[in-house]
Nucleic acid binder design. Structure first.
Length: 630
RNA sequence: GGACCCGUGGUGUAGCGGCCCAACAUGCCAGCCUGUCACGCUGGAGAUCGCCGGUUCGAAUCCGGUCGGGUCCGCCA
């Protein structure tokens, strides 16, 4: 309840105050400070030391006439030395205050200076937070990087975020339960990290990709409301927003439906955001909710960035409704698309009508990289419309297209004609690309939104079966229960046209500013539905036993209806810190190639370690020479 | 698995076939300096230009490979 408890005293034998603490009211007191030398300014008989700890910066003055011994010591001091200084807090001389510092009205007049620790010249600037530093250097000397103000600030924010998460969950009756890191492979799609077992030679543990199965078991165990800040491991290639080990807020609730889980998570996210970053406005409360279909239709993605508009517009009607060319637009790409029932959609880039040939070419190139075969553009200005396809379709139709797309003077309409999936994907990515380029994304705003009602299954043509799009335990929407069937009526005879393809899951993702924060679902807890769902996936319950044995067994003993969610703490902290890279909010991250430059991990094990495990490294070449390759 | 960008004194950059046994800033070292706060002034040290190979009369500069870092696609909820 108490949001602002009195700050605890951080006094120790080495310091009476922190370096950010002293104020004019302390003038006259004897204080002892300890910290790193941020900067030394040597004026001969007078030396200034800026002493820094994570709480702030205090100017220390050492006057040779007042304290010759301290002065002698101070002249030996260099940047990043750790020193302990004792002296009297004094008001600074009139006109000499430093208004940029909270401690800038006072200074410590040193009577003694003691060097606690010397320091080599650091490999990069610690006292200049904005100086660019090579990423590899930062990672190798991470302890120095973290010593810098920006990393300190971000780790503090992350700590506040996690603390707020704990508080909200504790206040809402959740029990924090730790789950093991040495478990059995959880087939969630990603590659497992494995740990060989010494006591059971020839077998391995897997590190959890998430505590998914364990939290469902906790529901069967009657824990009712569980949460955990859990470490998760996935052996996949890195990205700016992906590390091989990362942290999730994992939670699960019993006796809930979709609305209950979403309502709690939303409340929690709002409280946590407001207490972690009180100055950041939340764009919309309650959070907007989109069905998956709607999100794809309007934003081309299941994690829309709502900080700006530029929605995708279907412009097919602009291509067919013209009296003088009822059958043909005159432009083969459009005609083919219409004839084949493909998707033709547009986005409007505000103020980009004057884009140069080169800029347009870059946009086309970007669209191609995103998977488009081409990108049609129509520039709208005061005089009319301009487009390379004008000579095929005529100005009149260009104007209709522009109107349909919602473009006004100064705007640039960008059109993709392709399959629905490609059109949405390309325009969705292009939208994000342009939103950033045109500065439409307010870095302060927090735009949360929900996307739910995902398709339950995806057709796997190779195995002639329906694959669960998420977790195989995700439940189907009550109104779609009847769709869990095949056209043939026999679950063993499946085809792409089955009703199951239209079934939607009780599954929801939370997105923030265009990033996927996380997702979850209400699970199937009924044995008959589970069997049915598994059958559509070409699996029997017994066949799934190898992978989900414990959960299936547990479900025989009274499983409550339950559902939950998992949110990426790293991404959350990243966005709240206005960063675009998870490494910036991770104390000790790995490089893109999965190495730790500071610890020099991974490294070859001792031969003895292999021997104990009954392992021998044979190298990758032998694997590649195995049957069927070369 | 693939595409692209980067790699030059401690750090950040410039130089992009000869003018370079490499320039600038900062840092570092020494000396001077009693009111600075990116203190100032004077002087000095410090780089075989990531590594290997090739092209060339001549390579930091061009080409190939390799290593390291990053961005993206594939992969990944």
């Amino acid at each position: 309840m108490n949001d602002h408890p009195a700050p605890p005293s951080l006094a120790t034998p080495y310091r009476s105050h922190t370096c950010g603490q002293l104020r004019p009211v302390d003038v006259g007191v004897t204080a002892r400070l300890a910290g790193w030398v941020h900067r030394r300014r040597d004026h001969g008989q007078l030396i200034f030391l800026d002493l820094r700890d994570r709480h702030g910066l205090t100017q220390v003055v050492i006057d040779a006439t007042e304290s010759p011994e301290a002065h002698e010591r101070a002249s030996l001091v260099r940047n990043e030395f750790v020193v302990m200084v004792e002296g009297t807090v004094a008001k600074r001389m009139a006109g000499k205050e430093n208004l940029d510092l909270p401690t800038g009205e006072i200074e410590l007049r040193a009577t003694s200076v003691e060097i606690l620790s010397e320091a080599k010249t650091p490999p990069f600037y610690i006292n200049e937070p904005d100086a660019p530093v090579d990423e590899a250097l930062r990672l190798k000397y991470r302890y120095l990087d973290i010593r810098r103000e920006p990393m300190q600030r971000r780790l503090l924010l992350r700590s506040r975020l996690v603390r707020a998460i704990h508080e909200v969950h504790q206040d809402h009756g959740f029990i924090e339960v730790e789950t093991p890191d040495l478990i059995k492979s959880t087939p969630e799609g990603a590659r497992d990290f494995i740990v060989p077992s010494r006591l059971q030679p020839g077998t391995v543990y897997a590190l959890p990709q998430s505590p998914q199965q364990l939290k469902q078991l906790l529901m069967v165990a009657g824990i009712d409301r569980y949460y955990q800040i859990a470490r998760c491991f996935r052996d996949e290639d890195m990205r700016g927003d992906r590390q091989p080990e990362f942290t999730q807020l994992d939670l699960e609730m019993s006796f809930v439906d979709e609305a209950t889980v979403m309502a709690f998570v939303e409340t929690m996210a709002i409280e946590v955001s407001r207490s972690t970053v009180p100055d950041r406005p939340i764009l919309q409360v309650p959070f907007p909710r989109f069905t998956y279909d709607e999100a794809i239709e309007r934003y081309g993605t299941d994690k829309p960035d709502l900080r700006f508009g530029m929605e995708l517009v279907d412009i097919r009607s602009a291509l067919v409704d013209v009296a003088d060319h009822p059958m043909s637009t005159g432009f083969a790409v459009f005609d083919t698309a219409l004839a084949e029932g493909l998707s033709v959609k547009a986005i409007v880039a505000p103020g980009l009508a004057g884009a140069s040939r080169r800029e347009i070419d870059e946009l086309v190139e970007t669209a191609r990289r995103f998977g488009a075969r081409g990108l049609v553009h129509v520039a709208v200005d005061e005089d009319g419309v301009r487009s390379p396809i004008g000579k095929f379709v005529g100005d009149r139709r260009l104007k209709i297209i522009a109107t349909e797309a919602g473009a006004g003077p100064g705007d640039l309409v960008l059109i993709v004609a392709d399959t629905a999936a490609i059109t949405a994907d390309v325009l969705g990515r292009l939208r994000v690309h342009l939103g950033e380029r045109l500065g439409l994304t307010d870095p302060d705003v927090l735009a949360y939104c929900w996307v739910h009602r995902f398709p339950m299954y995806q057709w796997d043509d190779e195995h002639r079966r329906w694959d669960a799009t998420h977790n195989p335990f995700s439940g189907v929407l009550p109104e779609d229960l009847a769709l869990l069937d095949t056209a043939s009526g026999d679950l063993a005879v499946r085809s792409p046209g089955d009703p199951a393809g239209r079934a939607r899951a009780m599954q929801y993702d939370l997105a923030l500013n265009g990033w996927e924060l996380g997702g979850g679902s209400v699970r199937i807890h009924r044995r008959d539905l589970l069997e049915r769902s598994f059958a559509l996936q070409g699996q029997s319950v017994d066949g799934m036993r190898g992978k989900f044995g414990a959960v299936l067994d547990a479900f025989e003993y009274g499983a409550p209806p339950h559902g939950g969610i998992a949110l990426g703490i790293d991404r959350w902290a990243m966005i709240l810190s206005r960063q675009t890279n998870i490494r910036e909010v991770t104390a000790f991250p790995k490089t893109q190639s999965g190495t730790d430059l500071m610890l020099d991990a991974p490294s070859a094990p001792d031969p003895g370690q292999y021997a104990e495990l009954g392992l021998r490294y044979v190298g990758l070449s032998e694997r590649e020479v195995g049957p069927g390759s070369r």
